[in-house]
Design a protein around this nucleic acid. Structure first.
Lengths: 194, 194
DNA sequence: AAATGAAGTTAATCTAGATTAACTTTTATT
DNA sequence: AATAAAAGTTAATCTAGATTAACTTCATTT
């Protein structure tokens, strides 16, 4: 169990005393998932918010035609969950699946509610985390409307250079909202023009 | 100054004592904007988060080609701001402009920081508000990828029936990410098929 | 009431990106 | 090493939605 990444992350937002850190970890589950395992399944209630220590996940939605749409990739030092399902404790819209073997800390619903009471500063932490996630999500909406697929791909490469190496192309296409064939075309255009 | 809508709204999430309510309103600015006035301008730092008591706003982004893209409509009992700019106190990506005469309560950056200290429960309130906004934003991304323009328009009508009446069609087209001409075509198709 | 402009419609033409399908390369399995 | 399966590429054809442009309706100003 490697506590350091989570502590370092938290200390960017709030300070915790040693006692608070002890309380925190007493309520967290450290867990190991294998590649391809599901953390959340569409239709089930999402029981945890997860901080990734190592590994990566994709959050995706399967539409009525059976088509898979990737909403987010998550890697170490970031969070993964279906927040809508977690908040409301209603069936999840999304699947969360591991792309690699993944280690993470799980904040379960009841444990997190208790933690908010025992360490009220955590309200601030999670407020700030969700604020950032919301802003990123809004920016993505704008990009999807105002940019071409090629531009979105270039931004993706620059913004998440680590992810591109570790994820198959067809998933990147799904994240960008285009087909793998069209992503292939974009890539060959980019190679020719430079 | 009509305090009731904001108090009713807050009481859905947390309870405030009478003293806390007094502190709260001592740090809020009640303000009246006229139709077409700007609350936030792209490039300026966004100085407030605003709770709408009456009226409506659009939050939009002007791209490099001068094209306007509407990100959200906000009406009474909801919030309007450029949260990314507010959080970081850096220049705004978005404009927020009134579509009607609008009355609202302004939470300025410094006042809100003070309020979080004096009434820590507000951290919980704003955590929950941003959680909901984030979930709505994620769902919108999914819809934009997996649905046609016609389907998105129908969902918009069902989800925000109040807004459709009050906003010109070309703005709804902008919100849906299509041209006004294509929205017009969709509407005539829907009329013919029913 | 006339005039100007903004908002909305219709139709013809065009294009970014989807679909289909055949093919190549890479990775995993025996 | 051989085989199968998964991932990625290329090219031809197709379509949802954009663009352009002419026209109509509605609202505002004089």
């Amino acid at each position: 169990m490697n506590k350091k990444p989570l502590l370092d992350y938290i200390h960017n937002y709030i300070n915790l005393t040693v006692e608070e850190e002890t309380i925190l970890f007493s309520k967290l589950i450290y867990r190991n998932y294998l590649k391809d395992q599901y953390i959340v399944q569409q239709g089930d209630v999402c029981k945890s918010i997860n901080f990734i220590v190592s590994g990566s996940t994709k959050t995706f939605y399967v539409d009525t035609e059976g088509q898979e749409h990737i909403v987010v990739f998550s890697i170490e030092d970031w969070w993964t969950s279906d927040l809508g399902s977690f908040m409301t404790q209603k069936p999840a819209d999304f699947n969360v699946q591991c792309l690699e073997n993944t280690q993470l800390f799980q904040f379960t619903f009841n444990n997190l509610e208790e933690l908010y009471i025992e360490i009220p500063k955590l309200e601030r932490l999670f407020r700030k985390i969700v604020e950032r996630a919301f802003v990123a999500s809004q920016k993505r909406i704008v990009r999807n409307f105002s940019l071409t697929a090629k531009e979105r791909y270039q931004i993706f490469r620059n913004t998440y250079p680590k992810i591109e190496q570790r994820v198959p192309q067809y998933m990147i296409a799904s994240y960008l909202g285009i087909t793998k064939e069209f992503l292939s075309k974009i890539k060959s255009q980019l190679i020719q023009n430079q």
